[in-house]
Design a protein around this nucleic acid. Sequence first.
DNA 1: AAGTCAACAAATATCGATTTTTTTTGGAGG
DNA 2: CCTCCAAAAAAAATCGATATTTGTTGACTT
Lengths: 220, 220
Amino acid sequence: MNSADDTTGREVSATRATYLALRQMILTGALPAGQKLKIEQLRKMLDTGASPVREALSLLTSDMLVERIDQRGFRAAPASLANFQEILNLRCALEDMALRQSISQATQEWEEHLVLAHHRMKRVTDTETFEDAHKDFHMALLSNAASPILERYCSQLYDLNIRYRYLAASDASYQKRDISAEHEDILEAALQRDADASSTALLSHYRLTGGYLTTRLGSL
Amino acid sequence: MNSADDTTGREVSATRATYLALRQMILTGALPAGQKLKIEQLRKMLDTGASPVREALSLLTSDMLVERIDQRGFRAAPASLANFQEILNLRCALEDMALRQSISQATQEWEEHLVLAHHRMKRVTDTETFEDAHKDFHMALLSNAASPILERYCSQLYDLNIRYRYLAASDASYQKRDISAEHEDILEAALQRDADASSTALLSHYRLTGGYLTTRLGSL
DNA sequence: AAGTCAACAAATATCGATTTTTTTTGGAGG
DNA sequence: CCTCCAAAAAAAATCGATATTTGTTGACTT
């Protein structure tokens, strides 16, 4: 499903392939939140062995997408309104921190990286790749903070948030146009090295869609 | 090596036992930072199978104590001065956030929990259990934030920090008395529900030992 | 002397089968 | 009708062996 899977290209391990597949299934809701994840069932579904499945699930634990209970297996991380709001709040706090650090250490190289990521996001047409490009842009904003752990946390929270977008069943295509102006604002302020303006734009960007999702999550 | 391993007590899975053992070895430096972790070697060392070792290592990835490189195994997470300082900064930021939330929602129940944790920490004599009690106290301070993810991050960062304490080879016994007054200050301010004072005391608590460790980490 | 490449060695990753543990089921007794 | 318990079924955990991949060594070419 991804790039680099032609016959000549280097093979990926079964574990990694399984990891990516399961991750995608959990993010998109193909494996619903809270569901028991039985090894045998997944093994058949993905046509692989039990070991790769087990190891992939263990790795997904890092992303907080899977919970492991000793001696009684794995389950997809549960979802709730409270969980969503916690994620939203933490994202705002951590990304604000990371963005400000990024801007305070701004370099020409970083700015060019940023402009590029933005350009790529704009030019994408299909929903599938837009998700990736969108994340790339947002992570690019934080990539100059020189704080790998903070970036890791932000990336995790980003993914956890995606999950709720799918849960709310909002098709991203309509949002794409709606929010492009917001992206411009964030980018411009960052390039001006105006941390306050950039952060304000970023947080309102999150809180807007956050509020929208909150209203659509009564079913939890 | 732990409690509850008598014949009648409930058994823990080999994976969990291995996880705990490896975790301890990495935290204390028995497995040095950056070192290659060979399955076979660990399997023999812990007298268990390859599967539990492999799974334990995968789980340790969540804690950022082990790195996994596809198709070429695991290694203990590397350590560096930059890494230490990032951890220190993040801890200060995140624990400040969590502590303020805890205090803002203070309840009698939480206060009692806090007092108890503090008491238990004070009464402990041996270094071994002091580490646990010390962490319990610090986590208790944050436990009322009602933010499981934030707590998880703080717990992770706490452990990563422990690692550097061992690296700096400072014996904790001498610190114990040195810092007990600081603990009192944090506790008192929290019980007074004075967020600013409590946070200030907490952060200076961290920054003091942080600065001490920084000077002792020239060897990185 | 540096670079290439085959053969070997070592380590990782994976499979298939077995052992434990948990969960379910179907009474027997209260 | 509910509770408790044992047997059966299901699932997880683990083992031992095998297959793949990576890393290394040293002869051979240029």
